[in-house]
Each structure stands twice: as structure tokens, then as C-alpha cells.
Design a protein around this nucleic acid. Structure first.
Lengths: 262, 262
DNA sequence: CTTGAACTCTCTACGGCGTAAGGTAATCTG
DNA sequence: CAGATTACCTTACGCCGTAGAGAGTTCAAG
């Protein structure tokens, strides 16, 4: 999960950066040298680094290097790394997906689309999984996203509190499930070993030490999963199964609420 | 950054450390000074630091300091930080809980107990959330845990693959849900601000910038949630709701499998 | 008892991090 | 032109994991 924290900087400065950035790149005759950079360009460079090399590789020096300046000159545009990450977050929340999630249709289709949208965003920007977002950034795009997700469960007979809870549950699940998938993919890249190769390197050592009769179910199921996937897991399939289970459970809840009220 | 990786070190050395540690603290007449430390003590110290100060504060220097030696002497006992974390993981997987999760009873009770057990472990050791575990450590305790979780869904008419998927889904969900709760609690400590205070610091600034009519549902539900909890969320309640939804969905799946074969 | 191997532990050093402090050069308003 | 303001730079601090080399301790063998 976490390495960095959202909404960790000065609130006033952060909110200005988030909401004001849009219109105001004009600067009426200010003294001093022309800026060589823009906040926008800095954020874009930072996202590219985080996307391709991971959040651990995102440093002020790396961003600056990519832009042809020194690390300290970034501080002219952005108060610090924390605020930079805030803006990165709100920017990727604002990415439009195709096709857009349907606003009409049944709630199940809406929630499926939302879950898959969020999954796709995590896959595009795996570093999102490592940013602690319990304190929301409160940028325009993040707010719009929250609003959209709530609308998907509005008018189903759930209380406002339950709506908020359901949206949380779904996004918690998506986070957890995608995290597993992303970690697995990254492990392959980082170690230069596929899951299968990795297991094969351990199998002979493990045999000497692991008493098969002590863990019968793990041995049986592990072998079955390994035979099916050529590795230990199929994250995409697990994702869809979990989504189905949650939505089936939600269906029961909505039905119960509907029975209650009449 | 603070994301660490499990099973990142030399497999042979790691597996020895994990499986061999138990019986063999005896050393038949070896030359050289008596060791002042044990692997066990190092792991215990490391866990204490991670528990109380977070994974970011866990450094070889800090562990060594707590044990009264220099950082480099730890490398006599442990090949590196990666392997140390492996052993930390397997050790906390081995913690016994009271009461033990029931092995009998209905599957629903078993899975609830497992989910709550795992939640409790994450709450005791929040740094677990920051360790990427897609490559399992393959220690005795981790293996036992996997076996126990699979047994909880054995004999319900699910295929071996489905059993593995269900266990993954549940643990993915638990991870995601607890992560939200832990982040929220840590945010309060880290910033010395309760959620309520944090919101109050932003409310006046946000009002100027956020068009309420543009985000009607978010505004309404956010206000309701804020009024109910004095903050934005109730993580424990969300956890239980999500668990219920998943188990209800699983019930439907088991029913379907039973209808098929019956 | 002496010697040499094995072992524990220490010190120093490298290149990385975020950013505080302070200097220099460019560009505006008067 | 002067003076204010801005952009950018260099330097520095205390952290990190761990490589390398060396000092001191304890054993078995000669």
C-alpha cells in the first residue's frame, strides 16, 4: 500500500494548485526571468516517471532532470513533493475513459462499469495503489468521481449512509484485488522471473522442508491452480468473481430494503 | 519509499531462515566470539519498531541501535533487509489468536472468523499492508494459514480453482478495507488532526471553489456521513457490510453449484 | 602453547533522498 | 537608471542499504 500521503501539504496552497491551475497560466507583466516550466509540465513528467518506473523512482531530482533543470527549481512551482502528488492524483482521476460509464441502465451495469474503470486506472497508474488517500485531495476531478459513484447507487432505497458504505466497499475491494494483480506483474519484471520460473527455483528446496501431509488442502489446491494457470493465480478472474459476489450480495440487500418499505 | 517486497532475497538462505530457525540455535563448538544476538531477537526488535513507528521507520540502523550493536553486525545473522522482512512476515502469520477460528460449524462462520482474524492481524501490524506479498514467503506459518483458509471452503461443491479464487477474493477485500481504516487512523496521528478538524480547516477554502450544484449527490451524502460519524467514514461498519455482501454472494454461488449437480 | 582458520563485530564510504539557506542573474515598474 | 521581484543554481544536512576492509575473539590442530 502506502508510501506517500495525499493531502499532506498546506491546504490553501494545495487547493489553489488543484482548482486554480486550469485557467491561470497567464501572468500579467511580472518582473524576473520568464519561467521555463509550468506546473502542468511538471505534473506530466512526474506521472510519466511514476507510471514507468514506479513511485519509488519518483524523486524531485528525477523530475527535474527530465525537465532539464535542477531539483530546487521545481520548488518555484510546487511547494513540495506532497503537493505535487496531490495534483498528480487529481489529474489521473480526471482522465476520461472510453466508453464513459453509463449513467442510465440498471445499477448493476453502472457499478460494474465503475469498478472496471477504477481497475483500469490502477493498471494504467499502479503508483496510485501506493498513495494513502484516506484524506481526500478535494480536487475537482476527485470530487466529480465521488459524485458519480454515489449517483450510481442513488434511488435504490438505500440510506445516504448505506450509499456511502457501498461505494467504499466496492472501491476497497477493487483496490485490494488490483493490488494483488499489479504486485504479481511487477514481481515478474523486478525479478526477471515468471511465476513459473520462480516456483521452479523453490520447488526442490521446498520439498525437503514441507511436509505434504501436514498441509493437504494447500498442496492439492496449489497444484490445481498451478496446473490451470501455469502460475499461482489468475488475478483477472479473481477480480471478476469478487465483483460478482459483491454485486450479488448487494442485490440481496436492495431486495431486503425494498421488502421492508413495502 | 516504503513498499517492501516479500521473498525478494536468496531463496535458499531465506527458506533456511524460515524453516530452520526453530530447532537449531545450538552451535557445536564453533570458533569465534559468542554471538551476542539471535535471529529471533532481531526479528522481534524489527517487528516492534514497525508496529510502533511504521515500516518507513524500520531501518537496519534502527534495529541495530535497539539491540546495542551497529547496523553491519546484523548482516552476520541475516543476509539483508529483504530476508529480515520475510521472517517478520512468517512470524506474524504464526501468531495465535483467541479464540481460534472454528474448524467446524458452517462455512459462513468459518469465513467470518478468518476475515476478522486477518483484519485483526493487519490492525496489530499495519506494516503488513505495505509489504507486497504476491510472491509468498513460503514459511511454515504462511503455508499453514493458506491451508486453513482453503479448508474453510472445502467440500462446498466448489472446484479447487474456485476455492482458490474465493480465498483470494476474501483476502483481497480484507486487505483493501483494513487499509482504508488504518490509513485514516494514521492520518490522524501523523497530522495531529482528527478528521473533523481536518475538514474544518478546509471547509471555508473549499466553499469558495466548489460549486455545490455541480456535485449534488456528493454534497448531500457527504453531509449525511459527516453528521453520522463526525468524520467522513466508519471503517469498521464498512468492513462488516462488505464482508456480508461477499458472503451473501458466495451463498448464491454455492447454491448455484448445488443446483447444477443436484 | 602456538598457529591459523573461522567467526563476530566495527568503521568508513558510496550514491541516493527531500528540502533549507543563500547567492546570482534576469526582468519588470518607476 | 534604481529597486523590487522572480527564476534558477549551488551547497549542505541527516537519513537510507550495504560493500569492503580490518580488528578482536574463540576454536581445533600441530
Amino acid at each position: 500500500m502506502t508510501t506517500e500521503y495525499s493531502a499532506a501539504g498546506d491546504p490553501k496552497r494545495s487547493l489553489e494548485l488543484l482548482w486554480g491551475a486550469e485557467g491561470r497560466d497567464d501572468r500579467p507583466g511580472r518582473p524576473g526571468p520568464k519561467p521555463r516550466l509550468t506546473v502542468d509540465g511538471i505534473v506530466r513528467a512526474a506521472i510519466e516517471i511514476a507510471d514507468t518506473e514506479g513511485l519509488a523512482a519518483l524523486s524531485m531530482r528525477r523530475v527535474a532532470e527530465r525537465l532539464g533543470v535542477t531539483a530546487m527549481s521545481l520548488y518555484t512551482y510546487v511547494p513540495g513533493k506532497a503537493e505535487l502528488i496531490d495534483v498528480m492524483l487529481d489529474r489521473v482521476y480526471g482522465e476520461t475513459t472510453t466508453p464513459a460509464a453509463p449513467e442510465d441502465g440498471d445499477w448493476r451495469a453502472r457499478l460494474q462499469a465503475i469498478a472496471r474503470d477504477n481497475r483500469a486506472r490502477y493498471l494504467r497508474h499502479p503508483w496510485l495503489l501506493q498513495v494513502a488517500t484516506s484524506r481526500p485531495v478535494l480536487g475537482p476531478n476527485e470530487t466529480a468521481r465521488y459524485d458519480r459513484e454515489l449517483r450510481a447507487v442513488d434511488g435504490l432505497g438505500l440510506s445516504d449512509i448505506e450509499m456511502d458504505l457501498v461505494v467504499s466497499v466496492l472501491s476497497d475491494y477493487v483496490h485490494g484485488a488490483v493490488r494483488g494483480a499489479v504486485e504479481s506483474a511487477q514481481a515478474q519484471r523486478r525479478t526477471d522471473l515468471t511465476d513459473e520460473e520462480w516456483w521452479q527455483a523453490r520447488a526442490p528446496l521446498l520439498e525437503k522442508v514441507l511436509d505434504v501431509t501436514r498441509f493437504p488442502t494447500a498442496t492439492r489446491v496449489g497444484a490445481a491452480a498451478g496446473a490451470e494457470y501455469g502460475s499461482a493465480h489468475d488475478p483477472a478472474r479473481a477480480f471478476e468473481l469478487g465483483l460478482r459476489l459483491i454485486l450479488d450480495g448487494l442485490q440481496a440487500l436492495i431486495q431486503a430494503r425494498s421488502d421492508e418499505s413495502g
